[in-house]
Simulated assay, not measured.
Amino acid sequence: MYVTDRRAVRTAARVLVLPAALAALATAAPRAAAHTDLDTASPAADSARAELPPRITLTFSDPMTQKYAKVAVTDPNGKSAATDEPEVSGKEVSLALDPTSPAGRYTVGYRVVSADGHPVSGSYSFTVEAASDSSAPSARETESEGAAVPRAAEEAAGETAADSTDGESSGGESSGGTVPVLIVVGALAAAVAAAVGAYVVRRRRARHGD
């Protein structure tokens, strides 16, 4: 009777312990096989922004380790836009960016390791749109400024021509004033010569008459 009871206890233990162990393994297996993922990113993938944010922030499904957090952001020219090393705070990894970086397409690359040893890597891109420069002259203003230059040149040329015409007019009046004087002097000389000739003729006739 005693032996039979011991065998029954052992059989019951095996029946109870085996399912419990299998249940424990089934519960632990998904956790051990779970993969750390990138949950959210700011700026988001394929997004367009008016300006570059002061920092990029990546949020993962598990806490990260500072030692193995690697994040890089390259600008449209292929240069690094980061100003410091990545910072880890729980599940978040952030990286400060240079606000003077140019507009265009940015690429984010990351490789991090979670606290339980799972590595995570990937990349994505976002765009910073070029801001419109209100201080730059518009095409219409440029055309107006371009047209103003020929007008100014034409006005200057017109003033120069007017000054030249005035000078020529003054010179004509001076020349015209000199011509009448010469005519008067010539007429007087001719009159004097005629008078002298008439006097000489009369003197000769008078002599012949004597």
Rank of each mutant, 00 (worst) to 15 (best):
G104V: 09
E159I: 10
T83H: 00
P150W: 01
A193R: 06
T160Q: 15
M64Q: 15
A34H: 05
A153S: 09
T107H: 04
D210W: 06
A28R: 10
P43L: 07
Y68T: 03
A12V: 12
P99V: 06
F126E: 13
D62G: 08
T27V: 06
D75M: 06
V200P: 01
G186I: 10
T127W: 05
A33M: 15
H208I: 08
R205T: 07
A103V: 06
D210I: 01
V184T: 14
E87I: 12
M64K: 11
A193M: 12
H118E: 13
A190P: 01
S89T: 10
S144H: 04
E51W: 01
L38M: 14
T165V: 12
S121L: 09
A115F: 07
T27C: 00
E154A: 13
V17N: 00
D116S: 14
R140K: 12
Y124L: 01
R31S: 10
Y68G: 01
V108H: 09
A50Y: 03
T178W: 07
A82H: 02
P19T: 08
A12K: 11
A131D: 05
A33D: 13
S125E: 13
E141S: 13
M64R: 13
V179F: 04
A45M: 03
D62R: 14
R204W: 10
D62S: 11
L188V: 15
R111Q: 13
L25R: 01
A190C: 10
P102I: 02
V108Q: 05
R14H: 03
P102N: 04
V108E: 05
V108G: 02
A48L: 01
G171Q: 06
A81F: 02
D75Q: 08
A190K: 08
T27P: 00
S174K: 09
V201R: 14
E92S: 15
A148D: 09
S121Q: 15
A148I: 03
V200M: 08
S89N: 13
V149S: 13
A157C: 04
R203H: 03
A206E: 14
A96W: 01
S144L: 11
A194R: 12
S80W: 04
V200I: 07
A115N: 10
D39V: 15
G146S: 15
V15S: 03
A156E: 09
V184G: 03
L58N: 11
E141W: 08
G78H: 01
K79T: 01
A156D: 07
A82F: 05
A33G: 02
L182N: 02
G197Y: 10
E159L: 15
H118R: 14
V73I: 13
F60H: 09
A41P: 01
E51G: 08
E168D: 11
E51L: 02
A21P: 03
T100M: 14
G78C: 04
P86V: 06
P119I: 06
R49P: 02
E154R: 11
A153P: 01
A193F: 11
L97R: 02
G90C: 10
E85C: 01
A26Q: 05
R10G: 09
A157K: 13
V185G: 01
A12P: 03
A147D: 12
L182A: 11
G104Y: 07
E154N: 05
R202Q: 08
G186K: 00
V108A: 04
G186E: 07
K67R: 15
P137C: 10
E155V: 14
G172T: 12
T4C: 00
A198V: 03
